[in-house]
Amino acid sequence: MATTPATGPAPRRRTGASRERQSTHEGFLVHKNGKWIKISAALALALILLYIFVPLPPHHFGSSWLGYTLGTVGALLILWLTALGMRKRAITPGRWSLKAWTSAHVWLGVLLIVIGTLHSGFAFGWNVHTLAWALMMIVIISGIFGVTAYATLPRALSANRYDAEGAITEKQMVEALRSLDRQLHDAAQPLDRECAMLVDRSLEQDPFTGSIINRLTGRYPGDATREAASELRRLRAHRPRIADDPLDKVDALLTRKEAMLARLRRHLRIKGWLQAWLYIHVPMTFALIAALSAHIVSVFFYW
């Protein structure tokens, strides 16, 4: 049907700054065609083979040449992996990409299991050395959990935002709740004292209250909106039916509010999970660095 003008190579930057241009996109796990997963897998395999086939002393493996090498590489790698926190926040000029860093962070982090464990020579005990290894494993496992969350939850987060009319944002959800509250307030005016109290409790309850447990499970026992809805329905069953019952409108509004509340809470739950693991991952990293320092100092002083 038609032709488009030939598109040449990406235009040169004229301001002296250069820029990577990516029109196709891939996620951080498979960045550059899975470059880092390949590197990590190859290194892991090579190290395991070395460990198996290179003749080394049966005890005190850590002080052998391979042990020292693994230990040094492992310690430096831990520091480098920690530096992601800086890289993420220091928006300096340069041709770096946080996605590439994340990709490397994830796969080299997984590789650390092999490096650290081989470095231990499988000699575990109740000492500071094993403590460092254990902390490292906690950090890595929490990280793996985080990667899983990053890989799966965004879809759910996105899907939760859509309804028949398109996607809405968190802000719009909160606004919708406020608007429903205003309408509830008006609709509840003709109600008697008992019913009005129930609606009032729903209005007064802050949708953001609740502990971290509530947030992560998405369960909010004692939710005033749900209670108000069921209680009103129960009360109504015992009353004579009348035309244009103000309870009808309140009931409809409470149902809508419940649905919107559920949606907002689902949103917050998913967002909560996307962040929660960092509260283990990051503090444990610092504990690991402390234990690692103790490990290094002790092996050199008390050998």
């Binding site: 250069s18 990516q22 996620g27 951080f28 000029p93 770096w96 990409s97 994340t102």
Partner: peptide, 28 residues
């Protein structure tokens, strides 16, 4: 578009997961 900043748009550089992309319609 982060003109004059080496590396180009920082929104894309700073995305940890590769979700942020910049495109032109003829390419996309």
């Amino acid at each position: 578009m982060c003109a004059g900043i080496e590396g180009g748009p920082s929104c894309v550089r700073a995305c940890p997961t590769g979700a942020a992309i910049r495109v032109s319609p003829d390419e996309f």
